[in-house]
Write a protein that binds this DNA or RNA. Structure first.
Lengths: 133, 133
DNA sequence: CAGTATCCTGCAGGATACTG
DNA sequence: CAGTATCCTGCAGGATACTG
């Protein structure tokens, strides 16, 4: 487990904690824009989903990474984990209002990028084929 | 060099190229939201900057990573590299119009997060101090 | 079903030295 | 000044096995 999930003990007040205290929004931004954070928020935009439903929607994510991602997003208050007791267990994940806003801003960014992909691809082609002096 | 900077040769048509062709906006998003991409775009929002000016503004970035980041952003058409010949060399970097738009959307996301940091910190505290059954 | 625990590896990215 | 080239290491994250 690389993400702290419990109260820091004396020994765990290390570089990470200092960083998190110095610039806490930075770590949240990393959770949101990281490898799986954005895809997870995206998958939860429309539906409340269970763990294995999420696994299927977030293409390529491993159990471990999905679990870790969900913990981070839940800890930051972007996702709610709703566990219905019973057997088999039933756990549902959904966005908080803040999670929905964040995911909307992220979608704005992605939408902008998608609309301009022809420009980006043209720029890449120009870069890749320009004469190297 | 981990980022492709030249036309792919026969051997280099590997998993990366397939990925880049399958979902090209994804790689651009990674360049924008990656470790140094966002900070670099942010530093260039106001000013045109030279390489070493950028190094000083983007706190903690190494020469190698700044160089790599700028190449990726230039290739995607988000940043322009303007080299004035002479000695000593003078190279200026600035945003393209698309780079400015992208960086504005990214700033929207960061601003939202910053405004809600009290909520996030409260959520973290609740998560860290809740009783573990 | 909804996870956690372990082990392992590739590669992002830092440090250092060098160049036109 | 504006980079590139090499070498090296920590750790993100995958694979696998196990559990309440």
């Amino acid at each position: 487990m690389t993400l702290p999930t419990a109260a820091p003990t004396a020994e765990s007040i290390d570089a990470f904690d200092v960083f998190e205290r110095t610039c806490p929004s930075r770590t949240t931004l990393e959770h949101v824009t990281g490898r799986w954070g954005g895809l997870t928020l995206g998958a939860l935009r429309e539906d409340t989903l269970r763990f294995n439903e999420l696994r299927r929607r977030v293409d390529g994510v491993s159990e471990k990474m999905l679990s870790q991602t969900l913990h981070a997003l839940e800890r930051d208050g972007l996702v709610i984990r709703d566990a219905h007791p019973g057997n088999p267990p039933r756990v549902e994940y959904r966005l908080t209002p803040l999670g929905a806003e964040v995911s909307a801003r992220l979608l704005d960014l992605i939408t902008l990028l998608e609309h301009h992909m022809p420009d980006v691809l043209a720029a890449r082609h120009a870069y890749d084929t320009r004469p190297t002096p």
